[in-house]
Design a protein around this nucleic acid. Structure first.
Length: 601
RNA sequence: GCCGGGAUAGCUCAACGGUAGAGCAAUCGCUUCGUAAGCGAUAGGUUGUGGGUUCGAAUCCCAUUCCCGGCUCCA
């Protein structure tokens, strides 16, 4: 807590204070920008998570080089200790004020405020005035620990039909420590960026000749994917899922039936002509699983039917949105569709949640956030499906989370038009959240396809459909894993688990023999026989983030024991080979995220 | 898709109108070494691509591809 806050008896850690600080910072930035770049018009400048931004319109094209200049002027202004003063003004006064300055965006905002019947307020500090509903510090003294970060484009009012404004992002904090910590986190995030680490560790690449958004899994990444897939398949089978495989393209008639050709058209690759028909790459697996369901008449006795596939889909994402492994044009979903009766939904939802939590735990994610998206009853006509189904489904989603004691956020109005859902965002090692698993009801497709089952009374009923993905996409999940571990993968996922480093050529045979014994024991070893010094070999293995290194010199060959070095720098000597194998095997079997060796003496 | 910024050897960068360089990596040779970089040599580039301006273009202009920061959208 800083002295200023004490003096003003404010809780500097409260969200209100921090937001006020950031919002105030935005005002000061707008003042600085308008002073330094005359002719710049202002729009809005809110506080956001970790910082603030302000959107500008004007003749000057801002670049990163402008930021230090703006920052400097901001500091000067802030040091003036100007109080923030709010006052209510009449709409007429306000209009006159903004029109006189040619601030057309502010006039537009004013129109909105007036139309909503809200009070019009102006907030000023120093000689600067902004149309603003308030939420500021008492004065500019609290604005000390901030940094401008980047320049970006942003649509006026977030609508892509509107003109593009220039946005300057900044971060601001009550204390220097917090600012430094945040800047350090940004640096850390940059250092563990999967787009950098992935190719550096030879896990994957994206090839310009092949096209953007298409992933090439290299041998090491491919092996990791294999492990992730095998683990997931085994889990799914154990949980009563049945694995299926379906094609990558289908006749446009299928997409007409499913409705994707209308509501998902923009995200689908174009038609491929085949003889007299037209085909399209699949953007989703759902219709294919429905076709399997419909391949014969189904009885209620078969339900719940859980069809699962590692299904590769292709989506025509707009070029500007692609991002490493996180947002691509071709990806594989661990996709399953559960067809069930109304009285089975709660059990099925619970099964999904349970499975998702198991996935997180296994891969070492401790923290996550659940969001339940429900409909907005006021806009009933926007949704497909009957009210009873929606009600039951939403109740099931919530009651499962409550029963499991999983905290969640309710997001009314966030449901898709075809059903409510649970989205899971997991929090990675440095506190960032990622959208991952999703459990969604679908009241649309069963209807579109006329799905049925024979009920106990002999009547034909429509099954309920739940769509669920846990990894979400294997590509994205892999990207998150890389960043979460910064490349220091748990042993069971590491493509190379043990690197055997020879001291001299005399140990080559012993090294190769050890390698094959470790292989036979089910481990993934590699040898480094190069004529380099041991320091260089260790350095290289370390840069590859290999979990275990075994240094093999004459002493070790003579003693028959292993000199083991862990990725974290710990060294263990005199380890017997059987101890080593059993420790590593156990570490893999238990899927430990960090090795459990005792500290050496 | 939109706004802005980029692209030089496998990687990190230099040269900023006057014959493209360095370190690391690679290859070969020497070294046989005890826990994060031994020594030397060699090879590696139509400066993303295509046009244009110029006596001369990595450098200036136009187009295009891809990448980056965002917006919009999303697994």
């Amino acid at each position: 807590m800083n002295t200023l806050a004490k003096e003003q008896s404010v809780d500097v850690d409260s969200r209100e204070y921090v937001d006020a600080l950031r919002h105030s910072c935005a005002h000061v930035m707008a003042q600085a920008v308008q002073e330094l770049f005359p002719g710049t018009r202002i729009t809005i400048g809110p506080a956001i998570e970790n910082g603030f931004y302000y959107d500008f319109d004007g003749p000057h094209h801002f670049t990163e080089e402008d930021l230090p200049k703006i920052e400097k002027r901001m500091r000067q202004i802030a040091e003036g200790n100007h109080p923030f003063i709010g006052k209510e003004v009449t709409p007429e006064e306000s209009r006159k004020f903004w029109e006189a300055r040619g601030e057309k965006f502010k006039v537009e905002l004013l129109d909105g405020i007036v139309a909503r019947g809200e009070k019009v307020t102006h907030y000023s500090h120093d000689n600067y005035v902004d149309l603003c509903r308030g939420g500021h510090l008492q004065d500019t003294r609290g604005i000390r620990h901030f940094k401008l970060l980047s320049v970006a484009g942003a649509y006026w009012r977030g609508d892509e039909k509107n003109p593009m404004l220039q946005r300057i992002y900044g971060t601001a904090w009550p204390t220097k420590d917090q600012l430094d910590k945040h800047l350090k986190m940004l640096e850390e995030a940059k250092a563990r960026d999967h787009r950098k680490l992935g190719p550096a560790l030879d896990l994957f690449s994206i090839q310009e000749l092949a096209g953007p958004g298409l992933i090439f899994w290299h041998p090491k990444g491919g092996l990791m994917r294999l492990i992730m897939e095998d683990w997931l398949r085994a889990e799914a089978l154990a949980r009563g899922y049945q694995m299926v495989y379906t094609p990558h393209i289908a006749n446009v008639e299928l997409w007409n039936t499913s409705g994707h050709r209308s509501f998902y058209k923009d995200n689908m690759f174009g038609e491929i002509e085949v003889e007299k028909g037209e085909y399209q790459l699949k953007p989703m697996n759902c219709p294919f699983h429905i076709l399997i369901y419909q391949s014969r008449l189904r009885s209620y006795r078969e339900l719940p039917l859980r069809l699962s596939e590692l299904g590769t889909v292709y989506r025509y994402e707009r070029s500007g949105v692609l991002h490493g492994l996180m947002r691509v044009r071709g990806f594989t979903q661990d996709d399953a569709h559960i067809f069930c009766t109304p009285d089975q939904i709660e059990g099925e939802v619970e099964g999904c949640i349970d499975f998702a939590l198991h996935v997180f735990k296994t891969f070492g994610f401790e923290r996550y956030q659940m969001e339940v998206s429900t409909w907005d009853p006021a806009k009933r006509s926007d949704y497909i499906g009957d009210e009873g189904d929606w009600g039951r489904a939403q109740a099931a989603l919530e009651s499962v989370l409550k029963r499991r004691g999983v905290p969640y956020k309710l997001c009314p109005g966030e449901a898709a038009f075809y059903g409510p859902k649970i989205d899971v965002k997991l929090i990675d090692a440095i506190g960032r959240s990622w959208q991952l698993s999703t459990v969604q009801f679908d009241f649309n497709l069963p209807r579109k396809f006329g799905m049925e089952y024979i009920a106990p009374d002999g009547s034909r009923k429509q099954p309920l459909m739940v769509h669920r993905a846990l990894y979400g996409s294997i590509e994205r999940f892999f990207g998150i894993l890389i960043e979460h571990y910064a490349g220091h993968f748990p042993l069971w996922l590491s493509p190379v688990q043990v690197k055997i480093l020879t001291l001299t050529e005399a140990q080559n045979d012993a090294a190769l023999a050890l390698e094959s014994r470790l292989k036979a024991a089910g481990l993934r070893p590699a040898v480094d026989l190069r004529g380099e010094k041991i320091g260089a070999k260790i350095r290289d293995a370390q840069l590859e983030k290999t979990p275990y290194m075994v240094v093999l010199g004459p002493r070790d060959v003579a003693s028959g024991t292993l000199a083991v070095r862990l990725r974290d720098g710990r060294q263990l000597s005199g380890v017997t080979e059987s101890q080593f194998v059993s420790k590593l095997s156990q570490e893999c079997a238990e899927k430990l995220t960090s090795p459990h060796w005792e500290q050496p003496q």
